[in-house]
Design a protein around this nucleic acid. Structure first.
Lengths: 143, 143
DNA sequence: GCATTGATGCTTATAGGAGAATACAATCAT
DNA sequence: ATGATTGTATTCTCCTATAAGCATCAATGC
């Protein structure tokens, strides 16, 4: 399970260290793709296969579905962790998520995400304001 | 079942002793996460799995849900109790709950919570004033 | 052939985390 | 009251993960 938040930095070549706590779960090779809200999604291979299978069941005749699938698959890239625990973020994805130097990894259960630090701070401070409200709304069960 | 209130202190590295009365219930490894009202929630693994399973059923396409899940999982961390009965509180969570040195553990049935001593005293003195009032609003059951 | 660029790998310094040791406090039984 | 036992607080040392700079190598274009 992927959880937690970790700060890292891109080097000049666009490589970044994968948080040591994510490495087991993500494996040596994983999939990185365009995510929603200007971030990147990182899926372990088995999760990706899972997702792919589920996406195939979506109604293909809908324009939105097609658009979504194109974004998702065309942006996807299989990356390998090098001996020093780093991966190279493909340039297109670096742009998509506006990664400069400081980035944030977050774990979201079955996937990880990479955010530009700036954007994440903005996003999370907005979200945390409503976090408690949302949780009261969303959770009609006991925590 | 987790009950009671215990005072402890953070050391310079941000570690704290888990009250010995909580250890059996929480186990060697448990989950710490951002809680409501500036505290931290501590869940035994089996309780956490429960929660996670229920959260995964939420609609992923909604922006509000995504935000909630990001906050929930990114704020979580699996920690291990060391041989001396201590755990390291991740820096982000230390900030969230404004832990300085003196902290309070409380047991709340299926989870424990950690509070900054200051904040807990503030909160509990307010709450105990309204304890009777709250219970009138809340409770329709026999004690 | 040579220079430039990008990709990959290596090395080092640093910070933060894990573990061990010790001292201190509280509880309990005799 | 005394000592034994358990639990807590604190400090020190060691080790690992990270960041950053540098070295190597291959591919490309001139």
């Amino acid at each position: 399970m992927l959880i937690g938040e970790y700060n890292h930095t891109l080097d000049k070549k666009g490589r970044v260290i994968v948080p040591s706590r994510f490495r087991d779960e993500l494996g040596d090779t994983f999939i990185i793709t365009r995510g929603m809200d200007s971030c990147l999604f990182l899926y372990p291979l088995h999760e990706w296969k899972n997702l792919e299978a589920r996406l195939k069941t979506l109604p293909f005749n809908k324009a939105e579905t097609r658009a979504f699938m194109r974004m998702f698959f065309s942006g996807a890239s299989e990356v390998e962790v090098d001996k020093q625990g780093r991966v190279l973020i493909p340039p297109l994805l670096r742009e998509h998520s506006q990664l400069k130097k400081d980035v944030v990894f977050i774990g979201v259960s079955n996937r990880a995400e990479i955010w530009s630090k700036e954007i994440w701070e903005e996003y999370s401070s907005n979200s945390s304001q409503s976090f408690e409200q949302i949780s009261e709304k969303l959770m009609d069960f006991q925590m």
